[in-house]
Every structure is written in structure tokens, then in C-alpha cells.
Amino acid sequence: MNNLTVEIDKLSKTFVSVKRRAVVIPTSKKEVEALKSVSLDIPRGNVYGLLGPNGAGKTTLVKTLATLVLPTSGTARVLDHDILKQPEYVRAVIGVCQGNERSIYWKLSARENLVFFGKLYRMTQSEAKERADELLGMMGLLEKADEKAEALSHGMRMKIVFARALLHDPEVLLLDEPTQGLDPTFATDLRNHIKRELSHKTILLTTHYMHEADMLCDKIALINEGEIKSLGTPHELKEDVRNYDSLHIRVVGIPDINPIKAMPEVMSASSTSRNGHAELVVTAQDGYDLAHRILNVLHEDQNLKVEHFEVKEPTLDDVFLKLTGRRIED
């Protein structure tokens, strides 16, 4: 067995939707390339992140690895099992957690849910019960073990979803937006749990939270429009934008950002406004030198009051922006 746990080999997926008239006559055909020849190898015990905006292909990649979606071409191997030829074997060694509280039975209790799924992973009743209690204890849910999932909070249900993925102690975990929609405390709990307890697992994590990727991942793949644009450690990725600064400016009023965008040193400028205040984020080379000119444009030319000004280190979002021309949270 080689040291690579997950080997993704030129995986492509094209979704074809055909509009039909009178059920059978095709009128138009639309093709969407969700994955374009994606290759990625994940060594044993590493946490790899897939970072990209909505619709970038992250979930399609996870679903393909989880054998839920058949690729158009290419393949992947999980612990040497081919996802096309041995899907049952793949499913036995992976644990999948999709950030969806609906993926458990609300009419069953936390324990009943875990025991049920345990049996689908070939455990005996006593093994499943023992494992369920072990995981519920780990998640701090033992006291709520016999309450129906519908009576629990969103965060607790998500913990059950997460525990379900760990039931059969899989070597590989596919975590698709595991903290999406969670309140900050629960999200932090879950991240800490992944960091502390699952350090020996091979994990593929999709997220669009940059700090989450930064905190948890050994390496991050930046994915956009079905292609991996760059792969590296968070530190390596940020190397690309080391000369850039991220300028955060808050003003009273609605600014016109076109003159700022027109400056040759500026890589990007965006503005979001709320309650009559606007927040500008400008990414530019040598930001300190540029700050004066930008403030002049806002204050002198546009007569806006600048409330706050700060120069920050570039983030993974800036790396993504440089590579793709769009922000992750677009």
C-alpha cells in the first residue's frame, strides 16, 4: 500500500441538462463542466482543504469521491480502491459529513440514529450501541442521547451528523462544509475537535471560510470553475501575494470605486454598503504607498468622511482573487 490515501486522477464531470417539449422532444441542451480534469493526491494523515466560491465544484468533487456522482472521465482511488470499480469498498473506508442537519432521522433519537447507521456499517447491535455512546460522549451529547433529533438544537443535530461520519472509524473523512450555518461556538468546538481528535485521519475538507481552511489544513487547493488553480500550504499560497497589502477603509456615504480600480497598482477594489456606511477592501501592491492617494480620492474628490483605515496582511481570499479575478465569498 502506498503512502497516498486519496489519489484523484484527471477527474472530470460535465452535467448535461436537456430541456424537452412534450416530455420527449429535446429543445435545448446545456452543459456545465463542474470538474475539469482535477488531479490531487492526499498523503496519509493529512488534512487537505478545497477552498472556492459557491459553484466552484467542491461539492461535486466530494460527491464523486463518495461514489454519489459518476465522473464523466478520469477516476480516483481511496486506499487503493477505485471509486468506479469498487464503490462498496470505498464507502466502507470513508466517512462523509455533509453540512446538512436533515441527513439524520428527526423522528429517531440521537442514539437510535447512530445505532441504525452503525448497523449499515456492519456493526452488531452491541457494537453499534457502544460506539454510539462513545461518540455521543465525545460530542457532549450523552445526556440528550434518548431525545428525538427534532427536539434538539441545530448545533446538536449537526454534532450527530458529524458523529455519524465517525461511527465506523474510517481512515478517510470527506467533510463538505461541516460548519456551514453553525453558530460560532459550535463551529469552534467542531474545528477544535477536528484539530485535536482527528489528526491521524486523512481528511478532505471543503469550505468557503478562509480562517477555517487556514486553521485546519496542511494543504489547500484553491478551486474555481472546476479547476484546481493552486495547491500549497497556507503559507506557500500566501507567498504569491506577499508584496500585496489589503487596505480596509470605512467611510460615511457611498463611494465611487472606479477611480481607485483604475490605479495601476490596484489588483482589486470592492465596496459593500450598509446603513449609509461603506466598507472598501482594496488589494494592491505596496499598499502603504498607495494609501495616501486612495484616501485623497475618497476625502478630497468625493467629499466622504473616512471613519476607519487599516492595512492588513493579505489573506487566502486575496490569493484567490489574484489567481481567478474573483473573491471566494462572491
Partner: peptide, 14 residues
């Protein structure tokens, strides 16, 4: 409808 289909499909059952 319950939202559990994909999860079931990721288990090793046929």
C-alpha cells in the same frame, strides 16, 4: 424528502 438519501448512499450497503 427526509434528506437522508445521500447519507444512506455513502454507507457500504448495496
Amino acid at each position: 424528502n427526509a434528506g437522508t438519501l445521500e447519507t444512506l448512499m455513502t454507507t457500504p450497503i448495496k
